[in-house]
Design a protein around this nucleic acid. Structure first.
Lengths: 199, 199
DNA sequence: AGAAAATTAGGACAGTTGCCCTAATCGTAC
DNA sequence: GTACGATTAGGGCAACTGTCCTAATTTTCT
C-alpha cells in the first residue's frame, strides 16, 4: 500500500476513535511512522485529509454493500445484514459510536465545508436500503422505510455509546428484525398515507 | 446572575453549537465579556467548566420535566411533550444535533472522565419516561419502552442533522405518536417477552 | 555509473491552547 | 475615609497547532 493510502486509513481510524478536530497532523504521522514535516508532501491541508478519509469510507461502504448484495439471496436477508452491523460492531460502537453519525455531527458543529460530503455516506446506505424495500414490493414508501431503519440504527448507536449496554443493543436489534418481518408480509400501503401508519 | 453562572451558560451554548474540545477559554471569555486572564479566578480547569455545564444541564432538564409533569394531566400527554421537543427544537437540532447525544459521543471519543456524568442526562429522561409508562400500566416493560423512545429521538436527531430534512422529522414524530397510542391501548405483556414483540 | 525524480527528515513560522501569576481596581463594612 | 476581601485586566508560560521550506536521502531510469 502506498503512503497516501496508509495515511488515509490511519486518519480514518483516528477520526473515528478520537474525532476529526482533536486529531492532529502529528498524531497521524506518528501512527504511520512518518516525520511530521514530511506530511506536507502527501497532504497540503487538513481538509484534504478529511476528503481522502470520506472518499475512503465511501469506497469501503460500497464494497460492503456489494458484498451483502452478493452474499444474500433475498432483499430481506440483505436488510438483515444491515441491521446486524450493530451486533458485529458492538464493541467499537459502545466505545466510539457510529463512524458516520459522529462524523456528520462533528462537521455540522464545525460548519465544515465537507459536512454534505460526509452526509453522502448516509445517502449511500439509504438508497441501498430503499432499493431492497422496492424489491420487496414497497415502492410507495421505500424511502420512508429505509430512513426509518437508518434512524433506528443511529439511535441505538448513540444510546449504546452512552450506556455501554449490550443487552439494550440486542433487544433493539431483535425489535428491528421483527419490525422488518411485519413490513415484509404487509402489503404496500396506498400513496399519501406512508408515514404514521406504516412505519 | 453572577459571573460563574454566566460563564456556565455561555459554555453550555458554545459546547452545544461548536463542541467541547473545540471551544476554548478565550471563546467563552469573549462571549461573556471577560478578559482571558480573569477566567482562572472562576474556573481553574476546563474539566471544571464541563462539570458546571453538565450540572446546569441536569438542573435545566429537571425543570423541564417538572414543567411537563405540571402542565399535563395524563402520562400519555407527558410522553407526547417529550416526543414533541424534536419539533420544538428542530432548527437547532438540524444545525447541531441533540445536545445530550452529541456531548456524550464527544466525551466517549475523548475518553473523558465526565463521560458517565454526561450520560446521566440520558438517565434523567429515561427514568422520567419509565415512570410515565408505569403510570400507564406498563410496569413490566417500562424501561424497555422508555429506552426505545429515547433511542428513536436520538436517531431522528442524528439524521435530521445530516439531511436537514424537516419533513423527515415530522414524519418520524408522527410515527412515534402512533407507536405511543398503540402501546397505551395494549395490555401490558407478560414478563420475559418484553423485547421484540412489544417494542 | 550518473542524472533525474520521488520521497524523506528536520526545523521554522506565527498563532493558539490551557494554565498560572501579579498588580490594579472594585464594592462594601467599619 | 480607610481597610479589606472580591473581582478584575494583562501578560507570561511551555506546549501544541496547521502550514511551509529546505536540504538530504532514496528510488528510478537511462
Amino acid at each position: 500500500m502506498d503512503t497516501r493510502n496508509q495515511i488515509a486509513s490511519a486518519a480514518d481510524r483516528l477520526f473515528y476513535e478520537r474525532g476529526y478536530d482533536v486529531t492532529s497532523f502529528a498524531d497521524i504521522a506518528e501512527c504511520v511512522g512518518l516525520s511530521r514535516g514530511n506530511f506536507y508532501y502527501h497532504f497540503k491541508t487538513k481538509d484534504e485529509i478529511l476528503s481522502a478519509v470520506i472518499a475512503l469510507r465511501i469506497a469501503n461502504t460500497r464494497r460492503m454493500l456489494d458484498a451483502w448484495e452478493a452474499e444474500s439471496e433475498t432483499p430481506a436477508e440483505r436488510i438483515r445484514s444491515f441491521i446486524n452491523i450493530l451486533i458485529v460492531n458492538r464493541t467499537k460502537i459502545m466505545a466510539y459510536g457510529c463512524p458516520v453519525g459522529s462524523l456528520c455531527n462533528e462537521l455540522a458543529k464545525l460548519d465544515h465545508v465537507a459536512k454534505t460530503d460526509a452526509a453522502a455516506l448516509f445517502t449511500l446506505f439509504q438508497e441501498w436500503l430503499a432499493r431492497q424495500f422496492c424489491a420487496l414490493g414497497r415502492e410507495t414508501d421505500a424511502d420512508a422505510l429505509s430512513l426509518h431503519l437508518l434512524m433506528r440504527s443511529q439511535g441505538v448507536s448513540t444510546l449504546a455509546t452512552a450506556f455501554r449496554d449490550e443487552t439494550f443493543i440486542r433487544r433493539e436489534v431483535d425489535a428491528m428484525h421483527t419490525w422488518l418481518e411485519a413490513h415484509i408480509s404487509e402489503r404496500s400501503p396506498p400513496a399519501q398515507s406512508v408515514s404514521s401508519q406504516t412505519v
